[in-house]
């Protein structure tokens, strides 16, 4: 099993309750906005603590049974919806920030070529377009030597052509790199194209 998640978390009035398990490939959390999909990703990343439950990824317990692995050792490659590139660092330094030599799936230049961002390495994030910033965010996550990827609406705010480019990249990560991916989306077409497993999330 790639992802085994069974979590409960109260946020204000709302209660997020989700249980699923899925095999290799891309697992899509699919549902309307505001139903807590991002909160589930944050719990898997270790940024939000479930009130109770269990999170196991690729056989390793990240949360539950008295275990709560801190985010820096979970090795989640998290691609945030708002990208969160470090504004004071160049694209190159952003890509290298989480670099784990021993666990590197690919070199920095190789990743830059793979993502088509080789010409952007000396720029600052503020000068990138949405699609460029998204590819840098994906590259930064890939280069951190992740054991799995978390992607939160990576295509939102992109036009069709850019979204298509990124989808090709995600398919290659899914098929060629072979990382388990937990993917949040509210777009049925995107989910139909990318997902190996679909988990419907309702309010």
């Amino acid at each position: 099993m790639s992802f085994e998640v069974d979590v409960v978390r109260r946020i204000g009035e709302a209660e997020i309750r989700l249980a699923f398990s899925s095999g290799p490939g891309l697992t899509a959390l699919f549902g309307p906005s505001g139903c807590g999909k991002t909160s589930v990703l944050n719990m898997v990343a270790g940024l939000l603590r479930p009130d109770r439950g269990r999170i196991v990824v690729a056989g390793e317990t990240l949360f539950g049974d008295g275990i709560d692995v801190p985010p820096e050792t979970r090795r989640a490659g998290y691609v945030f919806q708002d990208r969160r590139l470090f504004p004071h660092l160049s694209v190159r330094a952003n890509l290298a920030y989480g670099r784990r030599e021993e666990a590197a799936l690919m070199g920095l230049d190789e990743a830059a070529t793979f993502l088509g961002i080789g010409h952007l390495l000396d720029r600052r994030p503020a000068s990138l377009s949405g699609g460029e910033a998204q590819r840098v965010a994906i590259g930064r996550a890939l280069l951190s030597g992740p054991r799995f990827l978390l992607m939160d609406e990576p295509l939102v705010a992109l036009d069709r052509a850019r979204a298509d480019e990124i989808m090709v990249v995600i398919e290659r990560i899914r098929d060629e790199v072979g990382l388990p991916i937990l993917y949040v989306s509210h777009n049925p077409a995107e989910v139909a194209r990318l997902a190996t497993h679909v988990v419907e999330v309702s309010r």
Binding site: E72, R75, Y97, G98
Partner: peptide
């Protein structure tokens, strides 16, 4: 300081 950037850094393995 955007605390979300600090979170992002931690997911990238930074103490």
């Amino acid at each position: 300081i955007d605390a979300r950037l600090e979170e992002a850094a931690r997911t990238l393995g930074a103490s």
